[in-house]
Nucleic acid binder design. Structure first.
Length: 686
DNA sequence: AGGCCTCGAGTTCC
DNA sequence: CTCGAGGCCT
């Protein structure tokens, strides 16, 4: 019997040695052929031979499990399903990129770049394709792939490592003997058109649902909890960016970064090039536009980035998008359909939104039946009537929008849209303030069920109290049955009441109660946001929480105190104060606190006024501080940062290669500081 | 007064 | 994603 083999006692030493060498040779061969196929796009052996080598390695590893290493090609096939994806916080946020559509947009981009750099020469731009897939972050530590995560909201994504490991164009180990200690490679996972067609063919024969387009197929495949399914889905990866990098110098050019990636065995866009000036960008766009249909994958445009990384740093970021890059998008696919009806939706603030009900039409592989018309003026401007034939497209290839009507196909009986004078939900009068584009129901919380539902849904939403299981369906039922009228009522629900509702058994009812219980531990910022005060969104709620530290401090404040908070002006201040002065709202807050909602209270922010009233302008590159760091230090000390030098500027902080701002400061006699002097000023105030 | 930037609010489809 | 509007800078 082969019993002895199982215990390894009959394996003699020299033989094991040969086996190890053979396994290593096989791994190298397989990796080399994969690289040739997926990265160089130049197959080096027939598929059948590859499969034969692969099976040999699999058999060897089955007999000698001690030979299995994490970067073996056999370790890509996927394992047991996961219960869920874990959240991953990105060390360097994964930002989005601004879009341009017209030649004019691109000319403006180039002009802003040259102005920002104080440069009259043509700028060198790296041009690439804008793949229609999903952005992914690959983390390599000492050359080994240790984690892969989705973009998510840019700050937090999901851990999809096991799925990403099945993608053969992604090296499990970087091809270098001197890898950086840490590198985060960023790029796009996508599905080739041919693989998409094959997949849908398979889905059809298996009587499974087909995917609408390659993007959805790629997204669906990557979000599989069972990575064995992902392994059968032929996904590809192309790198275009970088997150953190430790233990190696950052390349000085974007194009050099991509060259480096290629040398490490990571696939990059084959169509990439470096051009000069705005005309170079437009020429690239035209060439790619011509070749678009012949490419093996779908793209929705091209991307331009300043090639010089130093110049990228100088321009920096505006909120969540870099100023040094732009996506030049192809026109969105359009279709024509008929407006069957225009209905009115009532939002949580009472805002009335006309929504076009459309005859179903396929746009970019997705069937569209609704499209927002935003407001009354928009309907007039586009002159949309019931029965009209209209052109629709998916804005940014996601949200449907009515572009225009087709006047020559308007039927004689087309009906003009009129905004109702009474709320379609509660019958209260509609009010539209002069100078405002939005018409609103005047019923408020108490009278209008739509506003109540909207407000309650806002309260339970993920960014507010984050109560899982309380969705639209359930809230609708609870409001209609009169079981919940204010957020405080949620916390008095019982198992019996909940179990009586449609589509609710004991188990789900208990889940809702557990989620409610869990939500009682929260943060002040979430709580303020959840209240749904007009003009107070997530960001303003955070500022308020930070500034006042406790709810009672906020409740006791007056207009002057609220106006101290950054980015709060008279309109927002009034909205906040009138909300808290309403006895009903006070009562609601008391009830919520009484039901056990609590958070950790902080100290009110000490306003550091060391640099209060001083305005700074930053120019050039500082030796150690980044622009963002310097700005944060100034603001923390109560100072302000402006974009250009004027008489009111107190100090100009100048670094290497300072441009026109420095000259202007000299002309005006403004005090100029270098980094060292600046740091002293921030510490001591003198 | 005018322009830029951010934030808020509303929306679609799977 | 889009639009509108508030806040702040020039």
């Amino acid at each position: 019997m082969g019993q002895d083999d199982l215990f390894g006692s009959s394996v003699n030493e020299p033989q094991a040695y040969d086996v190890a060498a053979r396994a290593e040779w096989l791994r190298n061969e397989l990796n080399r052929h994969s690289h040739a196929y997926y990265v160089l796009d130049n197959p080096s052996i027939p598929d059948a031979e590859y499969d034969q080598l692969f099976r040999e390695l699999q058999e060897l590893e089955a007999k000698h499990p001690e030979l299995i290493v994490s970067d073996s090609p056999t370790q890509r096939v996927g394992g047991e399903p996961l219960p869920e994806f874990h959240q991953v916080r990105h060390e360097v946020p994964m930002l989005s990129i601004n879009n341009g559509f017209s030649e004019e947009d691109i000319q403006n981009f180039d002009r802003r770049v040259r102005e920002g750099l104080g440069n009259d020469h043509d700028i060198r731009y790296a041009c690439e394709l804008k793949f229609d897939g999903l952005a992914i972050n690959l983390r390599y530590e000492n050359g080994l792939l240790v984690q892969a995560s989705t973009r998510g909201d840019g700050f937090t994504g999901e851990d999809v490592t096991v799925n990403i490991r099945t993608i053969r164009s992604i090296p499990l180990k970087l091809q270098t003997t001197t890898p950086p200690s840490l590198i985060e490679v960023r790029g796009e996972v996508l599905m080739f058109k041919s693989d998409f067609a094959k997949l849908n063919q398979r889905q059809r024969t298996a009587n499974q649902k087909e995917f609408a387009n390659p993007r959805n197929a790629a997204a669906g495949s990557l979000r599989q909890l069972d990575s064995r399914i992902t392994a059968q889905r032929s996904l590809r990866f192309f790198a275009y960016g970088i997150g953190r990098l430790d233990g190696a110098p950052m390349p000085t050019r974007h194009s050099a970064l991509l060259d480096w990636y290629q040398s490490l065995g990571i696939a990059v866009c084959a169509e990439r090039t470096v051009v000069s000036g705005a005309q170079g960008l437009l020429d690239f766009y035209a060439v790619i536009g011509q070749r678009r249909t012949q490419l093996p994958y779908e793209i929705d445009g091209v991307v331009y980035k300043i090639d010089d990384i130093e110049q990228q740093k100088i321009l920096g970021y505006v909120s969540r998008a870099p100023r040094f890059a732009i996506a030049h998008k192809f026109p969105a696919e359009e279709a024509t359909t008929t407006v069957l009806d225009i209905e009115i939706q009532v939002g949580r603030t009472g805002a009335l939104t006309p929504v076009a009900r459309l005859a179903p039409v396929s746009v970019g592989g997705v069937t569209v039946t609704n499209a927002t018309l935003h407001n009354e003026d928009e309907v007039r401007r586009k002159d949309i009537r019931l029965g009209d034939c209209v052109i629709v497209r998916r804005a940014g290839d996601v949200i449907p929008e009515v572009v225009a009507n087709v006047p020559e196909r308007r039927p004689d009986n087309a009906i003009e849209f009129v905004m109702p004078t009474a709320c379609p939900v509660c019958g209260s009068p509609i009010v539209r303030l002069e100078e405002e584009a939005i018409a609103r129901c005047s019923g408020g919380w108490l009278k209008c069920a739509a506003q109540r539902k909207g407000g309650l849904l806002h309260f339970v939403s993920r960014r507010a109290m984050d109560i899982e299981g309380l969705g639209e369906q359930l809230v609708e039922q609870l409001v209609d049955k009169g079981l919940v009228n204010t957020p405080a009522d949620f916390y008095h629900l019982t198992l019996d009441t909940l179990s009586d509702l449609d589509r609710m058994a004991k188990k789900s009812a208990q889940n809702v109660l557990d989620a409610l219980e869990k939500s009682k531990t929260t943060t002040l910022a979430r709580f303020i946001y959840a209240l749904g005060i007009r003009h107070v969104g997530e960001s303003t709620a955070k500022s308020l929480a930070k500034h006042f530290g406790s709810l009672d401090a906020l409740l006791a404040s007056d207009e002057a105190r609220v106006l101290e908070v950054a980015d709060i002006g008279p309109v927002v201040a009034l909205s906040i104060l009138s909300f808290f002065s309403d006895p009903l709202n006070r009562q609601l807050i008391d009830q919520l606190r009484a039901s056990g909602i609590h958070w950790e209270e902080g100290e009110p922010e000490q306003s550091n006024d060391l640099l209060a009233g001083k305005t700074f302008v930053l120019t050039g590159t500082l030796p150690t501080l980044s622009r963002d760091d310097a700005r944060a230090m100034i603001e923390a000390a109560g100072g302000k940062v402006a974009g250009s030098v004027s008489k009111k500027t107190s100090y100009v902080v100048a670094g290497e290669e300072a441009g026109s701002k420095l000259t202007r400061a000299e002309e005006l006699g403004v005090v100029i500081l270098d980094e060292e002097q600046f740091l002293k000023l921030v510490e001591s105030g003198s």
